[in-house]
Design a protein around this nucleic acid. Structure first.
Lengths: 193, 193
DNA sequence: CAATAGCTGACGAACGGTCGTCAGGAGGGA
DNA sequence: TCCCTCCTGACGACCGTTCGTCAGCTATTG
């Protein structure tokens, strides 16, 4: 199905050049198709963008859910650090994550509400899933003397910082920074301060 | 001088809508001027953008340097947390920071090298200044059992995460997250783990 | 089986609009 | 007087979008 091809090309170009920086002609060229033909599959550029966004959201959400269910029973330390490294791995060859970061940072102005609607749903879901894991960690004495909510938000801040580094730093810089930040973070939530 | 007016309007609009999302007509309208008149002051859109970028870089660099020299002798704890809160304050009513964040995350593709050139110079400078402060902190026993480099990179990750939250979260969410991340960070670098 | 009718995806041409760009002129201060 | 600033008018290029068309497939029909 060529709707799928179009969406994949659009995903890649939107991720690299943003909404305004990507023309339908470029998307068509990417898959050997004239821009007019895109209108056989989508009613407008916005329609295409929102379809890509919807897809990215659904896949990302499902992906996260599956991943969490699969690794939730590992020791907290292993679980968290594995989560962080996954971001670095995925960013390299997965346009979905790149797209997701770009549009949630700087969405096209006239689609701000739609984008933020997806984004907040995603954040809320992820936050609550991780929070449960932190609460269990406290019950199991994996970490001490810290609010689950605090550990959770600080971890989410850690993820944010990796994303930043991925967007403008290289991979090796991201890894170095990740190691440093992780060392401090883990010391912080497992200390008895 | 109206070159200055143009640059200020451009700074604001580039910060809010990005390079591709900002037209010269909009910039002109912002200061009651036709887009054609902008060409009396700048040879092209790129020229204007690079001028704004240069300004933002110089001012930001100077600003940071002054700030550091002024507060470098405070206790590490106060110095660091004050630095973090400054980001939140400045983001609200200083377009320069907003502009700086946006273009370093997602620069216009054809000006990638120029932007990154400034960015890396800025990062290197800031990194080395903070590193010195951390080294002194270790000598003064303000923090213990941790490499200055590690504490420095983790702190820089903390700043990154604040920037992320500022870009797409609200101010109150940024502050909550900052408090959590800071609590864990400070526990981490001052623990004896 | 073959003939026919309808549907679909892709494309050339062209629309109105906006972009960045440039030449040329009006106005005013030194 | 001569610059400098700002304006106007016009330009080609490209944007997203629409229209009409045409080839190829599918299904129906006799």
């Amino acid at each position: 199905m060529s709707s799928q091809l179009i969406k994949e090309a659009a995903l890649k170009l939107f991720a690299e050049n943003g909404y305004e920086g990507t023309s339908l002609a470029q998307i068509g060229e990417e898959i050997g198709m004239k821009k007019q033909s895109i209108y056989s599959h989508f009613t407008s550029k916005d329609d295409l963008f929102l379809a890509v966004l919807e897809d990215a959201f659904v896949v990302e959400q499902q992906h996260k859910q599956d991943y969490l269910k699969q690794h939730l029973d590992e020791p907290l330390h292993d679980f968290l650090i594995k989560t962080l490294y996954r971001y670095i791995e995925r960013f390299q060859d997965d346009n979905r994550l790149k797209f997701w970061l770009r549009v949630s940072f700087f969405p096209p102005a006239h689609l701000y509400e739609e984008v933020m609607n997806y984004l907040y749903r995603y954040i809320d879901q992820v936050d609550s899933l991780y929070l449960k894991r932190f609460q269990r960690a406290i019950e199991l004495n994996e970490i001490k003397k810290i609010e689950a909510d605090t550990a959770n938000m600080a971890f989410s801040a850690l993820i944010d910082s990796i994303c930043v580094e991925l967007v403008y730093g290289g991979t090796e810089r991201s890894e170095k920074k990740l190691q440093a930040a992780w060392q401090v973070y883990w010391a912080g939530i497992s200390s008895v301060s």
